[in-house]
Every structure is written in structure tokens, then in C-alpha cells.
């Protein structure tokens, strides 16, 4: 795992934890059990305080934490028999989107997700989780494969955006995303979407249409990143915190306007503090969601999915 950087708002916690360590050292010669216990309780209280009152920008920072679990971690932590399937059968294999066969307990599922890297080398290989058109087309190929053999689909969203490059435009980034939205809305198998980290705009929703949209407590999902929003609307990069507030991009915000169906709680201190607990929590939800969705008839499933998206939006009729 990469070095664990300390986020600014976590600093008091780490300072207290360091103090406890020092006292433990000291405790070898003097009895400090009571003092240590008191301090430990203080740390827990503080942790609760900090994490119950996070600002939106702080959540964005947690969503980008380098030690936060990424798609392959969830695949290994939750599923068995993962067999990656490569390529879009037309241009190439995009490393920023991965997918393949897997089992969730006894159930066969098709997995597709954005894949970020952990360090500079792997991030370059994964293009920082920014997909090119062939990534979306590979995803669509796998969705169709799942539909053909009647297997439910699970997608994991974690991208700073679709890649804005010359070749991406030449190969039709917009068309690739549009086609996925069109086709995902009519796939005759259940689709569960989980936003696990960053859900930036078209790049995210390009594999993000489904029957159930789940979102991890400290992830974000919006039409634009706070930084880009700041640069466009405020004409400066300095207003990212205000932009994050204005965009209302957290799981709680999005549940209120029905963009997502369910918030997946994270271990206290964020998913990066306890990977295996995070996997257990998400697995439990996935198992129960799939159980209920596979009972639905395909027509009913597609109709309900469509109706859900048709209702989204807020307008006034005068």
C-alpha cells in the first residue's frame, strides 16, 4: 500500500495517536494505564466528531485518498473467480476500465469498473482512471455479453473524468459515452452501480446507469469536479471549496434529490482506514440487492429503470 498521507483535518487525530504511542513507551517504566485509556477515548470521540461533521470538500479529499480501496481491491475483497476480459474488439484494450466474470458467493456476475493506479507507475498505466472511447466500448461489449447469458451486472465508478485528448476525440469519446447511456437504459438484466470514489461527469455515468445506484459515504458524484467548476464559474482555481459546497456532490446530498438510492456507510475514519470492513459492508448490500433484483422480469426491470430516469430533474411549470 502507498504511504498514507495525513489529510489536514485528520492531523489532530494523528498527533493524539502519537502522544499515546509515546506514553506507551513511557508506560513500560511508570504505570500510565489510566491516562492512556483516557486519551484513547479522547481520540475515539474526536474521530467521531471530525467524521460526523466533514465538509463536502473534505469528503472529496477522502474520495481521492491514495490508500482508499480501488476497483481491483473490491474485486479481490468481495468476489471470487475473477477472470478479466480484455479489449473492445475494435481498437484496443483500455487499462482505465477493467471488467470480467466473477462470482458473488454462488451468483455469477459481470463486473466493470474504472481502474486507478496506486503510484506514479501504475497511474500512468491506468491513465489515472481516465477512460478512452475503447474503455466505454469494452464495457458495452461486456454488458451485452452479460445480457446474452442473463447475468447481473455490477459497475464500480471511480474516475476523475473521461480522458480529454486528441485521440479520444478522434475515436468518438462522446459517441462512446452516449451509446452506453442508450444501451444501459435498455439492458434486460439487473444493473447495480456503486460509486466508490470519484464520480466525475460523463466519464462516470458512461458506465453508471442502473436499477440501483449505491454510493459510498465519502465519495463524490457530479457534473464536474470542484476544481474545474471553480475555474469556469469563478474564473480561478481558488474556489474549489465553495464549488464543492455549491455542487452538493456528497452521497447525502444526492440521496435527497434521488440521484442515488442508497448510501453505503464507511468504517469510521474512511474506507482507507479499514479495507476489509469496507468490503464486508459493501458485500452484504450487494448480495441482498442482487437477490431481490434477479427475481424481476426483464420487461418490468427495464420499465422501472426508464421511469426512474424520466422522473429525474426539477423544473417549474407556470
Amino acid at each position: 500500500m502507498a504511504a498514507n498521507p495525513i489529510l489536514e483535518f485528520e492531523l489532530p487525530l494523528y498527533q493524539l495517536e502519537e502522544k499515546i504511542e509515546e506514553m506507551r513507551e513511557l508506560g513500560k517504566s511508570i504505570n500510565l494505564t489510566k491516562e492512556i485509556a483516557e486519551l484513547e477515548k479522547k481520540v475515539e470521540d474526536l474521530r467521531h466528531d471530525i467524521y460526523k461533521n466533514l465538509t463536502r470538500w473534505q469528503r472529496v479529499q477522502i474520495a481521492r485518498h491514495p490508500a482508499r480501496p480501488i476497483t481491483l481491491d473490491y474485486i479481490n475483497g468481495i468476489f471470487t473467480n475473477f477472470q478479466e476480459l480484455h479489449g473492445d474488439r475494435s481498437f484496443g484494450d483500455d487499462h482505465a476500465v477493467i471488467g470480467g466474470f466473477a462470482q458473488l458467493n454462488e451468483q455469477s456476475v459481470m463486473l466493470v469498473g474504472h481502474q486507478k493506479g496506486r503510484d506514479t507507475k501504475s497511474n500512468l498505466y491506468r491513465n489515472f482512471g481516465m477512460a478512452n472511447p475503447e474503455g466505454y466500448r469494452k464495457a458495452l461489449r461486456l454488458f451485452k455479453l452479460a445480457e446474452k447469458f442473463n447475468k447481473p451486472i455490477i459497475t464500480l465508478l471511480d474516475t476523475p473524468g473521461a480522458f480529454p485528448g486528441i485521440e479520444a476525440e478522434e475515436r468518438g469519446q462522446a459517441e462512446a459515452i452516449a451509446r452506453n447511456l442508450f444501451e444501459m437504459s435498455r439492458l434486460r438484466v439487473p444493473i447495480i452501480v456503486v460509486i466508490i470514489g470519484e464520480g466525475a461527469s460523463g466519464g462516470a455515468i458512461g458506465i453508471g446507469i442502473g436499477d440501483r445506484i449505491l454510493m459510498l459515504e465519502n465519495s463524490w458524484y457530479s457534473v464536474i469536479s470542484p476544481e474545474s467548476c471553480s475555474s469556469i464559474l469563478w474564473r480561478s482555481w481558488d474556489f474549489k471549496e465553495q464549488a464543492a459546497e455549491a455542487l452538493k456532490l456528497t452521497a447525502k446530498d444526492l440521496k435527497e434529490i434521488s440521484v442515488i438510492d442508497e448510501i453505503i456507510p464507511e468504517p469510521i475514519g474512511g474506507a482507507h482506514r479499514n479495507h476489509s470492513l469496507m468490503f464486508d459492508i459493501l458485500k452484504k448490500t450487494l448480495v441482498s440487492e442482487i437477490k431481490s433484483l434477479i427475481k424481476e422480469k426483464p420487461e418490468k426491470l427495464v420499465n422501472a429503470r426508464r421511469e426512474k430516469y424520466y422522473k429525474l430533474g426539477v423544473w417549474e411549470e407556470k
Partner: peptide, 16 residues
């Protein structure tokens, strides 16, 4: 941008 995630959802709504 001023309708944030709801604007994003219009991509899904219109495509559907």
C-alpha cells in the same frame, strides 16, 4: 453546472 448532478442525469434521461 448550476444544477450539478441533476444536469448529469439529463444525459441518462434523454438517452433512455
Amino acid at each position: 453546472m448550476q444544477e450539478a448532478a441533476l444536469s448529469l442525469m439529463q444525459m441518462a434521461k434523454t438517452s433512455a
